[in-house]
Amino acid sequence: MKKNIILAGVGGQGILSIATIIGYAVVKVDIYLKQAEAHGMSQRGGAVESHLRISDKEIHSDLVPHGRSDMIISLEPMESLRYFPYLKPDGWLITNITPFVNIPNYPEMKHLLKEIKAHKNSIAIDGDAIAKEIGSPRSMNMVILGASAPFLGIPFNMLEDSIRAVFGRKGEDIVQKNLDALNRGRDFAEEYIKK
C-alpha cells in the first residue's frame, strides 16, 4: 500500500486539518507517514500545499516526487490545477468548486471547470454549498476529505475515529457536524463513481 497525496488550497482554508485527520488515522496503525507542510509567509492568503505520503514500507523523501502523486485533494478550484506536475496521468483530482477570489486576475469559473473535467479522473464537488446545507460552513474541508475517502485506502471508520479524536475537545456538536460533512462528501463521490 502506498499513496502520495497533494493537499492544496489557500492559506487559512484548512488543508492542515485534513492532514491532521489522515495523520492521526494512520499513526495508530503500523503504517509509515510523512507530511510536509507550509508555514510562515505563505500562510497569509497565498497558495498553500502539503505533501502527504502513506506507505507500508519506509518512506524516503518528505516531498512527493513530480509525476508520482496518486491524488490531489484541493479546497479551491484554481489551486487544484496548480499542482498538476505532481499528478500521475491516471491520478485522481478531487476539488471543491467554490472559488476563493482574492486576486484581480482570477480566471473565469467555466474555464477552470473545463480544465478540471478534462482530467480523466476528477471529482468536482461544491464543498462550500454542502457544508452550508448541514449548517457548518467551516466544515467544507471535511466534505472534500470525505469525497476523497474512496481513493485513500484508509478504512472510512478510521477517518471517523480521527475526527472524533481531533475535534473531541471542541464539543459533540462540532464532532457531529464534521462527521456529517465527511459522510456527505463520501456519498457524493460514491454516487459519482457509479455514474
Partner: peptide, 16 residues
Amino acid sequence: YPIKEVPTIVKGRPPE
C-alpha cells in the same frame, strides 16, 4: 516521470 503541465489559466496567488 511523465508530467502534466500547469494549465496556463492558473494565476499566481501571492500572500497578502
